[in-house]
Write a protein that binds this DNA or RNA. Structure first.
Length: 431
RNA sequence: GGAGGCGUCGCAUAGUGGUCUAGUGCACCGCCUUGGAAAGGCGGCAGACCCGAAAGGGUCUCGAGAGUUCGAAUCUCUCCGCCUCCGCCA
């Protein structure tokens, strides 16, 4: 949520930001008039309540003296009726106001390139060789050679965009997770396995809920949603808390499955496990003081880059344009990994500075010294590894067609009992 | 799932319809005192919002919501959470 005072005092800043985000149709004037109306109602009703409190005190004093209070009580009755009808009206306006305010996107960083879509993203750097056509097999073709993924049966049990991971690929998935947790532990992150379901209040604090209807699953007859990412659970974990600055920054390594409806993705990436309804992710999450967030953001990106390098996945770093980024972050870097079968870089990592936007909706603050004024802190999040997507990149980049084998990256071998490659069907039933 | 108990300022607690404008203790912060500290003294110590240029004033919040009442921390209902016991269960 943005600071309502900025909107009140500098509405042109908000309007400019909406324009940069291609959201010119946002009803900003309606929001401003709702704010005015809400304050008018509030002020008027507060005066009435102050009056009521005064008369109430008078009544209690007179009762103790044994004087007659019937006149005052009649007066109170009228005031109370007025107050409750005003309260009702205020609530209605307040609700409209809040739901509109919560939809205002975060201010974008001045470095963010302005554009309509991903074509305006700015490339920062590349790493690794990207042979154009090393082989024509995609990750599903390769998985089929070694019996590593069963999409057909998953379609039968669960539907499209589900999968059974099998054999060495299931093991490699957990290897990746373990490696990622060890990697972040060395960098001082605290491992967190969050609840996989959140209530509406928690989710609404971490995201713009109206934009998430197409993304997150709702549990029937419960006030619960399956998490789309550990980010939201970890962000909401500290809602309504005030930290002292000596406890910051807080650096978490979240590990969880992520559930996504992908309702708006019909026809995109329909083959394989690149875009699926559930995947595992190790997530970096930071709570820090505002003046540290730029530095923390660079650190998150460099962690994710280093992780990619250690896996040997060729990649490039992109600074997302205003048209391609989410509404909550003020600045987002993506790391795109090389997918040989597509001859393209595809998003594997998203690394965002949300500034005080989430902290404001979740009311997470800090203060330098006891009894000083508390200030909203900054939150940042970055994928360290989303394992299913990364498995796609690994299968394709590490496949050696001449020898018909998938080479396991050096850093993962210790998590695979020393195994260095996936060769033929290992053991167990093949059907 | 069943039975019972409990949710009040960081912690502990007081409070059973109007004197609660929520008290007290601990912790914490500032000052005094001291060579320095402890102890002691004095003061401060929850958040949000509204009006105001400011000084200042006001409103709301006793787990959440609804109700009874002129008036609710206090009475009623619903929900949520926690604890104890029983049942079931990875």
């Amino acid at each position: 949520m943005i600071d309502i005072r900025i909107l009140r005092e500098y509405p042109e800043k908000v309007r400019d930001n909406l324009q940069k985000r291609n959201m010119n149709d946002f009803p900003l004037d309606e929001l401003l008039s709702l704010d005015r109306k809400r304050r008018e109602l509030l002020t008027a009703n507060q005066k009435l309540k102050a009056e009521r409190n005064t008369i109430s005190l008078e009544i209690s004093q007179k009762k103790r003296q044994g004087s007659d209070t019937s006149g005052l009580i009649a007066q109170m009755k009228i005031a109370s009726d007025q107050i409750s009808s005003n309260d009702h009206e205020t609530q209605v306006v307040e609700k409209d106001f809040l739901s509109l305010l919560s939809r205002v996107p975060n201010f974008i960083d001045s470095e963010v390139p302005i554009g309509k879509d991903d074509s305006a993203n700015r490339e920062f750097r590349r790493w690794g060789n990207t042979p154009l056509a090393p082989h024509t097999l995609d990750h599903i073709d390769i998985a089929n050679i070694f019996d590593l993924i069963d999409m057909e049966r998953a379609a039968k049990t669960s539907g499209a965009r589900f999968y059974f991971l099998k054999r060495d690929l299931a093991r490699l998935n957990y290897g990746l997770i373990s490696f990622a947790l060890d990697f972040l532990r060395e960098k001082g992150f605290t491992a967190i396995q969050p609840p996989y379901m959140l209530n509406r209040n928690a989710i609404a604090g971490a995201v713009i809920l109206s934009d998430f209807q197409d993304v997150i699953y709702k549990i029937e007859n419960e006030d619960l949603f399956l998490i789309g990412t550990a980010e939201h659970a970890i962000a909401a974990m500290h809602m309504d808390e005030i930290f002292s600055s000596e406890n910051l920054p807080l650096r978490y390594a979240g590990i969880s499955p992520c559930f996504r409806k992908e309702a708006g993705a019909h026809g995109r990436d329909t083959k394989g496990i690149f875009r699926v309804h559930q995947f595992e992710k190790v997530e970096q999450f930071i709570f820090c003081e505002p003046e540290k967030s730029e530095e923390e953001h660079r650190m998150l990106l460099s962690n994710s880059e280093e992780f990619m390098r250690r896996l040997g996945i060729p990649h490039r770093i992109m600074l997302l344009s205003s048209g391609d980024m989410g509404k909550v972050p003020s600045k987002t870097f993506d790391i795109e990994g090389w997918i040989p079968s597509q001859g393209k870089y595809r998003e594997l990592v998203s690394c965002s500075n949300c500034r005080d936007f989430q902290a404001r909706s979740l009311s997470i603050k800090y203060r330098q010294k006891a009894h000083e004024e508390s200030i909203f802190l900054h939150t940042l999040n970055s994928t360290l590894v989303a394992t299913e997507r990364t498995l796609v990149a690994l299968l394709e980049n590490c496949y050696r067609p001449a020898e018909k084998r998938v080479e396991i990256p050096e850093v993962l071998r210790s998590y695979m009992n020393g195994q260095s490659e996936i060769r033929s069907v290992d053991s167990g039933t093949t059907v």
